[in-house]
């Protein structure tokens, strides 16, 4: 009780501001939404133009180069294929024909910790039906990762991310999860904690 009061007193100095300007905030939100829409429109325009260029024999080679370059930039490819990667003994193309739940996570990430038991259960329940869960950790090294994996008895494949992988998949935050269909296409991308039901529904749908 004394400890609780002591800590409460300390935390009380943090205060907190009231009366946030809602209208200013709303206008900021709309600005950010507009910027995102603009990016999508521009990207769609570029994809359309590249589609036209790819249809013409004279410009096909240039279009292909642009598509490859854009694919590298946005961490995917215009065809929707999940970028190939090799991390240790994990090679994505080895999983072709299976549905892959590719989860980017870290040992220090609390929302990731919430998801791990779900993924273990998905691996156990849907593994025989064609699901493979791969956890790619963005931790600093195996010295941090191994004790965690052992302690949690993680039953799916774990790999350690490198800069190339993070760039390729645009991993700017964790958790970030990609559901890749049997053809190797990125079907669904989630950033942040998503409910177990949503994952399970998508997995069942992709498993067909």
């Amino acid at each position: 009780m004394e400890n609780e009061r002591w800590v409460d007193e300390k935390l009380a100095v943090l205060g907190g501001t009231a009366n946030a300007d809602i209208d200013a905030g709303l206008s900021k939100l709309r600005g950010m939404q507009r910027a995102r829409t603009r990016r999508i429109v521009i990207a769609s325009g570029v994809v359309g133009a590249l589609g036209v260029a790819a249809a013409l024999p004279q410009t096909r080679a240039v279009a292909k180069q642009c598509v490859d370059y854009c694919g590298e930039l946005i961490g995917g490819s215009a065809s929707g294929m999940a970028p190939e990667f090799v991390l240790g003994d994990v090679k994505l193309s080895d999983y072709r024909g299976r549905v892959v739940l590719l989860n980017c996570w870290a040992t220090w990430c609390r929302p990731c910790e919430v998801e791990i038991p779900w993924f273990m259960e998905f691996q156990r329940v849907y593994g025989a039906k064609g699901l493979s869960v791969i956890g790619v950790s963005v931790d600093s090294g195996w010295d941090v990762l191994t004790p965690f994996v052992e302690r949690e008895s993680i039953n799916y494949k774990i790999a350690l991310a490198n800069d190339e992988f993070s760039k390729l998949y645009g991993v700017s935050a964790v958790p970030m999860t990609f559901l890749i269909d049997r053809a190797g296409r990125t079907a669904i991308t989630h950033t942040g904690l998503v409910s177990r039901e949503v994952y399970e529904r998508d997995i069942v749908r992709l498993l067909g």
Binding site: L14, G16, T17, A18, A20, I22, G25, L26, L29
Partner: peptide
């Protein structure tokens, strides 16, 4: 989104601004 914003923006800003 606007109703969520109006309902929670103040509280979230207050919480975040503590730290």
């Amino acid at each position: 989104i606007e109703s969520v914003f109006r309902a929670y923006y103040g509280r979230l800003t207050g919480l975040i601004s503590r730290v």
